[in-house]
Design a protein around this nucleic acid. Structure first.
Length: 454
RNA sequence: GUGAUUGUAGCUCAGCUGGUUAGAGCGCUGGUUUGUGGAUCCAGAGGUCGCGGGUUCGAACCCCGUCCUUCACCCCA
């Protein structure tokens, strides 16, 4: 017998019965909404060939991939004369754990292009793994709930994403949140306008910190990142964008008047807002964030991010449009748009907001307790009858165990009703039916009990 | 990857400038109650003080390393 202490890998967690009930509640809510909007579920393997995963998430993303060691004597095939991690890795690991659900989906689309009915609306709920350093709201294994549409440019998809987020949050009773929307083309337009075309990436990383570090520091960082003084000066009007959506959009129209792509982005954005409005959704939770950037390099159009107010958790959902995700796998010209709910973070948010008290566990309804062997035999019959009527029931598995032990078990499991069986009950073919919250009990037949509970 | 931070009973935590047998509350087990859970009272079990090394007559406490926790940066769900 070894006596080593068991432990869990960093950033992973077990989920007990209560946690699972809550997680499933979130999963079910999201799944229900996806289906309501016409999305079909798929799954892909936990592991992919490393060639599918690498190079899709930038250099930093590649660092965060979990690699799987080849089976067998992997060292014998490796060239030991060249021992550094960059050259050794491809020789000893050819598989990795999936980092997100979008890239595996792109692979799926390319591999199944002839069977897929486009536009293809798919959802996928599976864990992903990232070799990040864990911290608040950040895990190394977590679930994403993705919904994507590929094969159409229609901005209705963008609008529906807003609708789905709205619906899910309403169902989960999360009321104070903000769906931040921007468009990559607007960012490109800004970069163009300040004379730094194609630099929107670094531009946004810096601007994004405006709230945190202030305008001066942002400018410093921009210079540091190689932007010219004149570019930084031209950027000034962006900091002054204030007011409601319409005002901001109009100001940007003037600012971006010489940028074709920038104006296109604004046009798309307005169309999405219009579609949401036409659907009849209030715009309370939607905000245009001209500085929202998002790191993933493949976004080309709309960008989304959702933040819940008054909690210390980062974004709980994010996504956007990518014009050519399948291109790297040799299938050009397929546009897609999608987003993802982070269940683990939604859980943390709901926990922090104490929203779980509203949901109740759907566990065992009736526990049957017995005093002796004959009542245990009768209990089995009752058990079958109750279950036959669709009532979740269980018989305490030890015949005639101490009543205190049996009742305690039911109490801790929060089972609302207990049927007590002793010699009197067996003789009368009835049960002492006890309500555990009020303590009331009465002598009833199984049929009467079923009538009460259904 | 960079910089901090934490670790004592199942859980939450005390434990003085280093000094005998490391404590509390909650929880757990048994009893109070041989046909009844939650409350009261009584009794009991449970700890290589994260792990490894060092300093010391003596280490939960000081030093080094390591792992884990948590947090910030980066990035993200």
């Amino acid at each position: 017998m070894s006596n080593q202490k068991p432990s869990l890998p960093k950033g992973t967690r077990d989920f007990g019965p209560i946690q699972m009930a809550r997680r499933n509640y979130i999963f079910d809510t999201i799944k229900k909404t996806f289906k309501l909007f016409g999305y079909e579920q798929i799954e892909t393997p936990a592991m992919e060939n490393l060639s599918v995963l690498t190079g899709k998430y930038g250099d930093e993303g590649d660092q965060l991939l979990f690699k799987i060691l080849n089976s067998g004597d992997f060292m014998s095939k490796a060239d030991s004369s060249d021992l550094n991690s960059n050259t050794l890795l491809p020789q000893i690991a050819e598989k990795g754990l999936r980092y997100d659900l979008t890239v595996p989906f792109a692979r799926y689309v390319v591999m199944n292009r002839h069977e897929i009915n486009f536009p293809f609306k798919r959802f996928q709920i599976q864990p992903v793994w990232r070799a990040d350093r864990p911290q608040k709201g950040r895990y190394r294994e977590f679930y994403q709930c993705d919904a994507d549409v590929v094969g159409t440019d229609s901005l209705l998809c963008e609008a529906e994403i807003v609708l789905m987020i709205n619906r899910v949050f309403a169902d989960l009773m999360i009321t104070d949140y903000s769906i931040k929307i921007n468009n990559r083309k607007i960012l490109s337009g800004i970069a163009e306008t300040i004379g730094a075309p194609g630099q929107e990436g670094p531009l946004c990383v810096a601007i994004d910190k405006l709230d945190k570090i202030g305008q001066e520091k942002v400018n410093e960082e921009l210079i540091q990142r190689g932007f010219s003084t004149s570019s930084v000066e031209k950027l000034a009007p962006i900091y002054d964008l204030k007011g409601d959506k319409e005002t901001v959009i109009n100001s940007l129209k003037t600012y971006l008047q010489d940028s074709e792509i920038g104006l296109k982005g604004l046009e798309e954005l307005e169309e999405v807002f219009q579609l949401v409005k036409d659907f009849g959704l209030s715009e309370d939770h939607i905000a245009f964030e001209p500085t929202l950037a998002r790191g993933l390099s493949y976004y080309t159009g709309a960008i989304f991010e959702v933040k819940v107010a008054h909690v210390s958790i980062g974004s709980v959902s994010g996504g956007g449009r990518y014009d050519n995700l399948t291109g790297v796998f040799g299938m050009e010209g397929v546009s897609g748009v999608g987003f993802s709910f982070g269940v683990d973070r939604i859980y943390d948010v709901m926990d922090e907001l104490a929203l779980f008290q509203n949901i109740q566990l759907e566990g065992t309804q009736v526990l049957i307790t017995t005093f002796d062997e004959p009542s245990y035999r009768y209990g089995l019959q009752v058990l079958a009858t109750l279950r036959g009527a669709g009532i979740a029931a269980e018989l305490f598995p030890e015949a005639g165990a101490k009543m205190k032990k049996q009742m305690n078990y039911g109490d801790k499991k929060q089972i609302p009703f207990v049927c007590i069986i002793g010699s009197e009950e067996v003789a009368q073919q009835k049960l002492t039916f006890k309500n555990m919250s009020t303590g009331e009990q009465q002598l009833l037949t199984p049929t009467e009990i079923i009538r009460m509970l259904t």
